[in-house]
Simulated scan of single mutants.
Amino acid sequence: MKVVAVCLGCLLVVTGCESTADRVQINAQSLHTDAVDGAVLAGEIVAGRAGPTFARAHAQELQDDTSQIEKNVYDQRLPRYDDLQQLADQIGAALGSIATRPDDTSLAQSARATLLRLAADAARMTP
Rank of each mutant, 00 (worst) to 15 (best):
P102M: 07
A39F: 08
D103E: 13
N27V: 04
T126C: 00
L31W: 01
A99R: 00
Q86F: 04
H32R: 13
G96Y: 03
H32E: 12
T20C: 04
V14Q: 10
A113N: 12
D22P: 02
T33M: 11
Q25I: 08
A42N: 05
E70H: 04
S30Y: 07
Q68V: 05
Q109I: 02
V4M: 12
Y81V: 04
S106A: 10
I45T: 07
Q86L: 09
T100N: 10
E44N: 06
S97Y: 09
D103N: 12
L78R: 10
P79V: 12
T20Q: 08
V73R: 01
L116I: 07
V14H: 08
I91A: 00
R112G: 03
L12S: 13
A113S: 15
S106N: 10
A120S: 15
D121Q: 09
V24G: 06
D83K: 14
P102L: 09
T33H: 11
H32I: 07
C10W: 06
A123N: 03
T114Y: 00
C17W: 15
Y74V: 14
S106Q: 09
V24P: 11
E61I: 09
D65W: 07
I69T: 12
A21Y: 07
V36W: 07
P102F: 03
L87R: 06
L115E: 00
R101K: 10
Q68N: 08
R101L: 06
E44V: 06
L62D: 03
H58V: 03
H58Y: 13
H58S: 04
R117Q: 11
M1W: 14
E18D: 04
E18R: 14
Q109H: 11
H58F: 08
A122V: 01
S30L: 14
L11D: 05
A21L: 12
C7Y: 05
Q85E: 13
Q63G: 11
L107F: 05
R23A: 02
I69N: 02
N27E: 10
V40R: 13
A120K: 13
D121G: 01
D82N: 08
R112M: 09
Q29I: 13
L31T: 01
A42D: 08
V46A: 08
V36T: 15
L107I: 10
N27D: 13
Q29N: 15
D64E: 09
A122H: 00
T100D: 09
R77K: 09
N27Q: 11
A39T: 15
K71H: 02
D89G: 02
T105P: 01
A47Y: 01
A59T: 11
I91P: 00
G48A: 08
L115F: 00
A108C: 05
I98T: 01
L115P: 02
S110L: 08
A111F: 00
G51H: 07
V13I: 12
D121I: 02
L84F: 11
D83F: 04
G38M: 04
Q90Y: 00
R49M: 15
Y81Q: 13
T53G: 07
Y81S: 10
A57G: 06
G48K: 11
D104W: 03
T126K: 04
D34K: 11
S67H: 10
I26R: 14
S30P: 00
